[in-house]
Amino acid sequence: MGPEESDIVLIFTVSATLIVLLAIAVVLFVLIYQKRMVDRDVELQKLKNKRQHELLRATIQGAERERKRLAQELHDGVGSQFSGLQLTLAYRAHHPETSADQAAFLDEACAMIGEGLEGIRRVSHNLLPSTLEEFGLIQALQDCIAPVQKAGFTPALEVKGTPFRPGTQVELGLLRAMQELLNNTIKHANATQVHICLTFDPYSISIRYSDNGVGLSQKLPHSGIGLMNIQSRVGALGGTVSFEGSQGFVAKINVPLQAPNSSVS
């Protein structure tokens, strides 16, 4: 091979090497660029999720505030006025000038007002479960399942772990979820038994709700919105929900806690 041919071979080899290196650089650029784009997308999605989470939480908090205001308005306003009216009618019924017919009529009216007052108290209590604030989730759940017992169900509440107060928002969210699930069971499940298992863990609170009703597939058309509400509420608390419904209905809720908790309720 002469010097001229050597130069040609060298030029070809070096040029080919340089071009190949350039092509590899292009390929690496594509990979790095794509990775950065993916990372940016993931970051954007995280921000978007966080914002949605905050919005949902604010919406739920707003709704709870409004419920509280409405409950107080019902209890202290309309409830007090009805109580006053009931007292006035009772006084009038037992007045010496009132005839027997009038007294019977007024007593009946008093009884009807009493029923109305009871209804107002019930609605007010549902809107603002004072038991939750004062005595915590376990007592509030017991209050919640008591009426179900009257309706012919056999509810059971089981508590595992050492109970503690995880904060009003978490307690309220879990209570509302349980109210929704109980409501679904009563209305659509044709169930006779309900079992709620509340587990306290230092890092999370979980609830397993089950009934022996028709299951998820037949329940869904009626209770789909309710289940979505539960998902939203639990999602706003940063928790997870899963529903199973092949034999009866099972809902599993898990809410992680910001910091490990060990305070006894």
Partner: peptide, 25 residues
């Protein structure tokens, strides 16, 4: 495709010159 065809581009373009070289080159 990018690596092979771009790396060989000079050879493809000057294939006539290359075929005229001696055996070793």
């Amino acid at each position: 495709v990018l690596i092979f065809f771009s790396g060989n581009m000079l050879l493809f373009v000057f294939s006539k010159t290359v075929s005229d070289l001696s055996g070793r080159a």
